[in-house]
């Protein structure tokens, strides 16, 4: 099987968010970066499918600036066979990334399964997987928490609103957007880390894939920090008085009832 995992380099979850001086975005100077956590589920899932299907290969793809290669090394260390780095400028939008990835995939060996994380934890857009699927004319299943594989059709359990789930049957090839619960991502073994350092990463320029400046549909501007959290209020009195005061506050201050 030809398995692809599309991954993104994102700031570490513990970073302290600071804005750039001109509010054009988040200041990432000196910030540690990681493989987006949902993408780890995607990598792990692809590796598990590979391990059950002899002769399969897993190719990790990322679109981003030069530093994005770091996450490809992480994916290779986890066990991916190949890596492709699509050189795409920082600040490109989901449409550009999706176009670049879709065009890249069309040139590679035909995919059976293309895995994504359900969203990247930096912008949380959750758009690229579906856009790639649309561009390739194949189905996509998002927020997947469980997969039963059986030949050309697979059953995906996906999270839906209200804390419940649904099961979707889909025919390969397909895009899968992985969510927490799908698996427990592995910790790379040292021999694989060592090997990953030496593996070749194929570099492709986004422009060679037909991605142009005009593909950028969204430009982000004027970032603002959320207002600081106000101190909580303690409602005193007996239960009846407390309930009354709470409803009053919900009505007049929170304006939700």
């Amino acid at each position: 099987m030809n398995l692809y995992v599309c991954i993104k380099r994102v700031p570490d979850t513990e970073m302290k968010v600071k804005l750039k001086a001109d509010n054009s975005g988040v200041d990432l100077a000196g910030v540690k970066t990681i493989l987006s956590p949902y993408d780890e589920f995607a990598v792990e899932e692809a590796l598990r499918v590979k391990e059950k299907n002899a002769g399969s290969t897993v190719t990790a793809i990322t679109a981003g600036p030069a530093e994005a290669i770091e996450v490809l090394r992480t994916a290779l260390a986890m066990g991916c066979d190949n890596a492709i780095h699509i050189e795409l400028a920082d600040g490109s939008d989901s449409n550009m990334a999706a176009k670049a990835i879709a065009e890249c995939l069309k040139k590679e060996a035909p995919a059976d399964l293309i895995y994504f994380g359900k969203e990247a934890i930096d912008d949380g857009a959750a758009m690229v997987p579906q856009m790639v699927a649309a561009r390739m004319g194949i189905p996509s299943v998002t927020i997947v928490t469980g997969i039963e594989y059986s030949g050309a059709t697979i059953k995906c359990k996906r999270e839906i609103e209200g804390g419940s789930s649904e099961t979707v049957e889909v025919t390969l090839p397909t895009v899968i957007a992985a969510s927490k619960g799908l698996n427990e991502p592995r910790y790379a073994t040292l021999p694989n880390i060592m090997k990953a350092k030496k593996k070749e990463v194929k570099a492709i320029k986004a422009s060679d894939l037909g991605v142009a400046a005009s593909d950028q549909k969204v430009k982000l501007s004027n970032f603002q920090m959320p207002p600081p959290k106000a101190a909580g209020k303690k409602i005193e009195g007996d239960a009846a008085a407390q309930a009354k005061a709470l409803v009053q506050l919900l009505h007049t201050e929170a304006k939700v009832v």
């Binding site: 570490d12 979850t13 513990e14 970073m15 302290k16 540690k32 990681i34």
Partner: peptide, 12 residues
């Protein structure tokens, strides 16, 4: 990533 076993930022 953060040089500590706890889930906190190195900057803190």
């Amino acid at each position: 990533t953060n040089g500590t076993p706890w889930a906190f930022s190195a900057s803190e």
